[in-house]
Design a protein around this nucleic acid. Structure first.
Length: 271
DNA sequence: CGCCAGGACGCCC
DNA sequence: GGGCGTCATGGC
């Protein structure tokens, strides 16, 4: 990754990034594509920072009105620019299906998100579809003037006061997650450092967090790249392409591989 | 109308 | 420990 500071903001050169593939692939739900003169532009937030970022036809990325401090302090880490995705894709491409998935969408990166936001987002995601997940999260932030509520704030809500979210049976799960996080029964920053089996057990103490949601929190919110969420789409991939199991040599980065496969199977032209 | 969505729970055996 | 109905909501 190369960057330069300009009067427009930070301009990044990075071959292994595509904004559509990374910001709209079901790992994060608060990015919106907005009209612009660039190839495409997304607007969104991470913690207390807002960002408008554009991708140009030359494959450069403009982080609009971002200072060098903010770029180095926030966005460089969020977009995981320290990781060499070319090298990862080289490893993945030793295997046939993954190789095709990487060729299909080589601009996916694993965002380094916030664990609390991921916990809430993926509780909402269960038995749900991506457009509706985005809508519910949008309405949740709308209750807090566009900000994502912290655990203390959300713990003051009840399933009734959350009714405007139209999150259905998930509202009581959100309240339980907030209560246990705010009270310290569940400590996300400690969980992030635990051996992964212990971390899974801890996360599943929250009602509404099962194997899939726990795995998503570990992967997307704690950057545990060995976590491997299995949803209905990945089940199809495993059944169709990996009847004998997922390759062992990939286990350290299985979660990142999973992102390429997820995007691939969901967007295959047919079948 | 039925089916499905980045599933988990409760109950049954 | 595995199997199955149920849980809201909305798009197709």
């Amino acid at each position: 990754m190369d960057y330069k500071v300009t009067d427009k903001g930070i301009i990044v050169s990075e071959a292994d990034l595509d904004l559509d593939e990374t910001l709209d692939c079901g790992q994060a739900f608060r990015w919106k594509r907005i009209p612009s003169d660039y190839d495409y532009t997304y607007q969104g937030r991470f913690l207390n920072s807002e960002l408008m970022v554009s991708q140009t036809k030359k494959g450069e990325f403009i982080f609009h009105d971002v200072s060098e401090d903010d770029f180095l302090g926030t966005w460089k880490d969020y977009f995981d620019f320290e990781t060499d995705y070319s090298e990862l894709k080289r490893q993945f491409s030793e295997e046939k299906t993954l190789s095709e998935a990487c060729r299909f969408a080589g601009g996916i990166r694993l965002l380094r998100q916030n664990s609390w936001e991921c916990l809430i987002s993926f509780i909402i995601s269960q038995n749900n579809n991506i457009p509706r997940i985005k809508g519910i999260i949008d309405r949740l932030c709308g209750m807090y003037s566009g900000r994502f509520p912290d655990a203390a704030e959300l713990s003051a809500e009840t399933p009734e006061t959350l009714s405007e979210l139209r999150s259905g049976f998930r509202a009581k799960y959100l309240c339980d997650a907030a209560a246990k996080t705010a009270s310290g029964i569940v400590n996300l920053s400690e969980i992030a450092e635990m051996p992964i089996e212990d971390a899974r057990t801890e996360l599943k103490k929250i009602t509404g967090v099962g194997p899939k949601v726990a795995e998503c929190v570990l992967l997307f919110g704690m950057h545990r790249t060995e976590a491997f969420p299995v949803d209905v789409w990945i089940k199809r991939v495993l059944a169709e392409y990996y009847p004998d199991g997922f390759p062992e040599y990939l286990s350290e980065n299985a979660g990142i591989a999973q992102q390429y496969l997820f995007h691939y199977i969901r967007n295959l032209p047919e079948k």
